[in-house]
Amino acid sequence: MVRYLVQAWLVLLLALGFGAALAAVQSRLGPRIEQNKRDETYDQVPRLVAGAVKERTRELKLKIGGEERAVYKAFDGAGRHVGWVIKAAGQGFADVIELLIGLDRRGETITGLYVLENKETPALGNKIVEPAFRGRFRGKPTARPLKVTKKPPRADNEILAISGATVSSESVTRIVNAAVAEFKRALPAGGGH
């Protein structure tokens, strides 16, 4: 036993030293990394809801689909409630896609879409992150579920698919439909008052 310890003193000493150094690094950088994660959502709020101010955004817990989930209530500079940002996730072509969806005060119109996380095929499916695709959701009414088409849309619930990435386009649309429907059910009658 003692022989092993004598042989391994360098390993033990290094492990202690590195451990202490890494603890110091973590305590310096940890809060910043946490902040990056939170900012990723909060930074998007003004882009997802017109007029919203990042600093005034409030995180609420709503009972959605049987479980407590965080939603973000967006306010403008004068403190007026202007809309909501909700998080949604679902299976994509490759892995789980995580979205942020901007909605107006009553959840009747989609005001913006942002992709937080995706592992879709580079240069095909991962074009879902580009504004050209995300913009197709802006202004869509939520009264009817959205549908993906391969031709230029004619009805106001149609979303033009990314060519070569129909599955990814459909996944995003399905996630949006499900999340918006659940959120509207959870929203107290009369919308955000």
């Binding site: 150094a21 890494l22 690094v25 973590q26 950088l29 990394i33």
Partner: peptide
Amino acid sequence: TVADKFIAA
């Protein structure tokens, strides 16, 4: 680990 944390931060 230091490099990973630095890039994440």
